[in-house]
Simulated scan of single mutants.
Amino acid sequence: MSSTELPYVPASNVLPKVAPVRVADGERLRSVELPGITLKIRSRPPAREGLPPALYVHGLGGSSQNWSLLMQLLDADVDCEAIDLPGFGDSPPPDDGDYSINGHARAVVRYLDAAGRGPVHLFGNSLGGAVTTRVAAVRPDLVRTLTLVSPALPELLIQRSAVPTALLGVPGVVPLFSRLTTGWTAEQRVRGVVTLCYGDPGQVTPDGFSNAVQEMERRLQLPYFWDAMARSARGIVNAYTLGGQHGLWRQAERVLAPTLLVYGGRDQLVRHRMAHKAARSFRDARLLTIPDAGHVAMMEYPKAVATAFRDLLSETEPGGAASGTATERADTTSTGD
């Protein structure tokens, strides 16, 4: 252990009183207790009985709220649930402090096994894309289809704008950053995140921005906030260095599930050129590129992502809803509006 890295200390069971997590109209947030972890699950009631199940997994610093817009659009197509990974959203830290890609993937697998909902239509964004790729590779029995939005798969040369995020995984950087930004307001922090993650920050509505500020204020009061961020960022960096059968690209090649890949042309965290490598790596891939989208296309262009998923659903589910062709096979690129 580096001299600048503090040992993991489990968070106290007594946490400061913070504002409740926002739950949108029609959503439900419940707690699931599993050995060593407690997970919060966000869901919407399906439009009718018998819809196939879906599970959504957020990215670094995100939460299940990142999927609310897409869940609302797809509640007539799938039975939607979104997970708060351990240490994020409203889920407390894992007892063992494991924020690696494997640790988060185990949390997803344990939830699906306990809930008996598999196989599911599995969605992942950024960090969640790496996590769900690993889940689909090692537990194909749990996955019907895989939809990846700007997945955090290894790149030889990361974009300059992604360097600060990667640096969060370096021991000692987070305490330093926390001290340097002590005077930053929640509004300033959210504005920085929006500028980094959205292709066009102007798309964020005033209500959406206000809700994000409230959520940031809530998270900053949590004693484990920065630790979860740092250790999860380190988990991404460590996963990038793995080779052999444990490497994420090798595991992508093992995924059997039909896969929808969604990339943004203005993504500052994942290079758009990685879309073509991903399309070649996943066995049964479809590619949707949205030129004006950034890193969170499901929040920026939820209708385009929903349409592309329905196309995938029409191929894989009996009686699946068919819609206009928003995706192409893996050897081509299409645009969303």
Score class of each variant (00 low, 15 high):
308 A>L: 12
148 L>H: 03
300 E>C: 08
31 S>A: 13
111 Y>N: 11
275 A>F: 08
214 Q>P: 02
303 K>S: 10
118 G>R: 03
134 R>D: 04
293 A>Q: 00
117 R>D: 13
135 V>H: 03
126 S>F: 03
25 D>G: 13
16 P>Y: 04
117 R>G: 06
318 P>C: 02
337 D>G: 12
237 V>D: 13
98 D>Y: 03
300 E>P: 07
125 N>H: 13
65 Q>V: 07
197 C>M: 15
249 W>V: 07
215 E>I: 03
136 A>L: 11
82 A>R: 07
204 V>W: 04
245 Q>V: 09
59 G>Q: 00
309 F>V: 05
277 K>L: 15
36 G>T: 11
155 E>F: 04
233 A>P: 14
185 T>H: 07
22 R>C: 05
158 I>M: 12
180 L>F: 12
144 R>Y: 01
50 G>Q: 00
9 V>P: 00
232 S>K: 08
25 D>W: 10
26 G>H: 00
198 Y>S: 08
10 P>M: 09
23 V>Q: 13
76 A>C: 08
175 P>T: 04
246 H>N: 14
241 T>Y: 10
326 A>D: 13
291 P>D: 04
51 L>M: 03
71 M>D: 06
271 R>K: 15
169 G>C: 02
146 L>K: 07
173 V>Q: 10
309 F>A: 04
96 D>T: 06
183 G>L: 14
104 H>A: 11
66 N>L: 00
215 E>C: 00
48 R>Q: 14
76 A>D: 15
74 L>E: 02
320 G>Q: 06
173 V>K: 11
130 A>M: 05
75 D>N: 14
250 R>T: 15
88 F>D: 09
132 T>M: 14
105 A>T: 14
307 T>I: 09
